[in-house]
Design a protein around this nucleic acid. Sequence first.
DNA 1: GCCGTTTTCGGCCCGACTGTTTTCAGTCG
Length: 567
Amino acid sequence: MNKKIIIRTLEKIALYMELKGENPFKVSAFRKAAQALELDQRSLDEIDDVTKLKGIGKGTGDVILDLMENGKSSVLEELQEEVPKGLVPLMKLQGMGGKKIAKLYKELGIDSAESLKQACLDHQIQKLPGFGPKSEEKILKELMEFDSKPGRHPIWKTEEAVEFINGVLSGIEEVSEYSVAGSYRRTKETSKDLDFIVATAQPAIVKEQLLDALPIQETIASGDTKVSVTVEFQDPIDIDFRLVAPEEFVTALHHFTGSKDHNVKMRQLAKSQNKKISEYGVEQEDGTVATFASEADFYAHFGLPFIPPTVREDGRELDLLDDISKLVDLADIQGDMHMHTTWSDGAHSLTEMIDACRAHNYNYMVITDHSEYLKVANGLTPERLLKQNAEIRELNEKYGDIEVLSGTEMDILPDGTLDFDDSVLEQLDFVIASIHSSFQQPQEQIMARLLTAMKNPHVDMIAHPTGRIVGQRGGYDPDMEQLLDWAKEYGKIVELNASPYRLDLAVEHLEMAQEKGVPVAINTDAHAIEQLDVMAIGVRHAQKAWLKKDNVVNTWPLEKLKEYLKK
DNA sequence: GCCGTTTTCGGCCCGACTGTTTTCAGTCG
């Protein structure tokens, strides 16, 4: 039995219980049990008694046992007989939860989106106690927009909205401090909505100015301290603003940065110290409320080191405090090993890229223009590559503060061969191998292509190993376990491509790489000097996978890196 | 349903907002 299936079954049971209107604590007990399994690094076979895990007791333990012995869960099957399947998608309607849906089913026999819609049109909903005309109207409206609303927004889309709103907030005089919070601040690759914390002594004025300045499509909620709106950018996106007093800014920022699990853990910790955390401050035993000048002070108040937003996710961060100081940090990055110039499809020249990297205080950098096969990107022929190589060597003599290495981003062709001969590759300092074509090939063929690159002694790194674009395309779906095993066997580096479009490898694959001892390089793949800045996003993404500095090759000094590349 | 060096029963994070009520339940983050 697959551990993932068990986790998903427990979550499904929780969902169905919710739809029955079950006790919320019972529901969350099943979710907690699923999470306990997920957080345990061991495989199912390695856990001798699941009920020994915190959060798994008799009830949830029996479900797991049932699944392992019979391949199915009688608890889930019984629930599925009781609760119509059509109710599940209704949970996605805004403002609708298990209790309301259970009531609709019980009182009106509503068992699907269609029957709910009909009941609205027949004005049956407003007759129910607890519901009214407004509820009915809202449900109908939600149902109409059901399919057209985008789900999660990829980070490269939200970036633009965040910058726009930052601009608006910085222009309002009464705002003393502001910050984006939520999953965007934690550098999740997608966000459901955006959250902003705004510190001000005059919330009413700020609220008015804010609502004036934004292209608002719809106002979802508008209270004294909380404003929720749908704003029209490229796509419509929901944004929450929390207006707080200046002294509450830090605790509010922490609260709304989340994650929810992190907050729960923090509040439990506070409680054990006889304190109480809310977004307004930390209530002490004597009833006074402490506020803070920074998040570092807030954590220190509980005897904790600063926990970066990137790792505030599933709660395990509070058990891994010693690892926080080992996390890769932007300040550790010594060089960028993947970038393009006007020689292929970059926007800036060799010297412009070198000067930009010097401005980043890097000790080294690698020029890696595209290879011949990639005609659309003006890929370099062997002759042009060698000419560029000579030019780089000459240029490198001029700079005392940075070492400019000569490399290539070489295509792995659809037929599985490499774009350059060994006689060319051996003249370069650094060779990247990449797939840019024929993504639709079956996995065996993709893996065969990757294996050719792995086996070539001149290849140093596999770039953007899955070819995905966040929220848009899945890539060529390699067998990641196998790919990483090969990387380990043949001594190759795998890339974390820092472009917000790619963030390739994904977090779970980075975790896998670190576990297997495969070194990672965080590179920008910059096609213009401004894009060198996405290193910061790449590093934060790496933190989400708990990547340690030592496992990231471009934190190494040049000598150590060169030594490694010789092998 | 799960948990317990003060607890085997009574808690389980905390507060805002909405729409329904006439003091509060449900939902959300």
